[in-house]
Design a protein around this nucleic acid. Sequence first.
RNA 1: GUGGGUAUAGCUCAAUUGGCAGAGCGCCAGAUUGUGGUUCUGGAUGUCGUGGGUUCAAGCCCCAUUAUCCACCCCA
Length: 409
Amino acid sequence: MLTQTPRGTKDIFGTQILLWQKAEDTIRKICAAFCAEEIRTPMFEHTELFLRGVGEETDVVQKEMYTFLDKGNRSLTLRPEFTAGVARAYIEHKLHADPSPTRLYYVGPNFRYERPAAGRMRQFHQFGAECFGSYDPAADAEMISLADTVLSELNINGYTININSLGGTACRAKYNEVLKTFLKENLSALCPVCQTRYETNPLRVLDCKDESCKEILVNSPIPLDSLDTECKLHWEKLQSLLDTLDIQYTVNGRIVRGLDYYTRTVFEFIDADTGLTICGGGRYDRLIEECGGAATGAVGFAMGLERIISMMPDALTKRPYVYIGAIGEAGFYKAQSVAQTLRRSGIRAQPDIVGRGVKAQMRFADKTGAIYSFIIGDDEMVNHQVKIKDMRTNSETAVSFNELLNFFS
RNA sequence: GUGGGUAUAGCUCAAUUGGCAGAGCGCCAGAUUGUGGUUCUGGAUGUCGUGGGUUCAAGCCCCAUUAUCCACCCCA
């Protein structure tokens, strides 16, 4: 137990960390291109924020939160997602007073107490972005494009962008009635879970994977049928904007999302191989108000980093560098100082610090991805030269101590 | 939260009806002592997930526990 990570958590190191760093670098680069700034919010928040922000009816809140009392008897919760915290920060720091729109992005761990499974951890990491201060579908399209651009920059494809619109508050209420009327006739044929959902959250019935439910729902009304004029306009404009941005998408009238705060646009990027959602998001025009701020249009998404990284082609496994081998005590000392010189010039280098034989040193250099191996022994000390071996071509050259840096320029 | 599988060396996995814990890969070292990737030779390494029980004897059988994988549920 002492030598195991807790259930649903992982150490990230070795070749994996290279993929994580590449993903994070790419995220920062693309977000910068979209003029989004990073925000880092606390790992835990007041429990109340998530109850309100995520929705009390959601599974995330009802079953999956890491909630605890601190020594001051405050109820705190490890964040299960970012949006509520980011919305809280937007309100707390009165960012609505800044020129609109405000684009924020985040990368970091989230926590949900769940049964770990394929592509699901208790501590998992998300990258996401939010755009505050626009009701126009151009903001929706831009967020979809940001997610899409990050993925394509990471050479990830093989996913489908599913889009849908749930409509505004009025449309949702209207649709709920329409759907309930439809479901009422088949209520007994629905799975037990959906029979409960019929009362608590009929919308989620659309999302059910149960075969008999699916069968019934084939002919069910969908939210798109209940959109009012304004929402319909938003929905149609979103599609022409996505066309303009040359983004391929599929309209899927049954995407509903498990979080309560969404209004109008919702979307999911679904991996064709695993069927997992690698990115989910949508518009949440009511959330800021709900949490005590001024009415503010907002749209955003979150992406699961673990899922993304598992889809990245793992090409680079070792970093090229210069190995500095030594024979004898004088050479050993010299090797340390040569390494120092190279490192201070920003060249990746490591000397022998074990004191092994040359053969073992060369083997080590080869296995760890050295592109050049230096050898410094008695002969080299006498001649004030370093023997440099190109590990790929096998060719050797001698370079004097003073001209080492020129070799790399 | 529900159902099922698995747990043995750093990794992937063997071990007959219960009878001395093994292989491949990796690691380390040598092949006339200053040179890697191929080859050959040798070497080290185990709380058999953990705790109980049955037995002359348990890696193997029984109970519990933890972890892990798969399918649900849900999500990223």
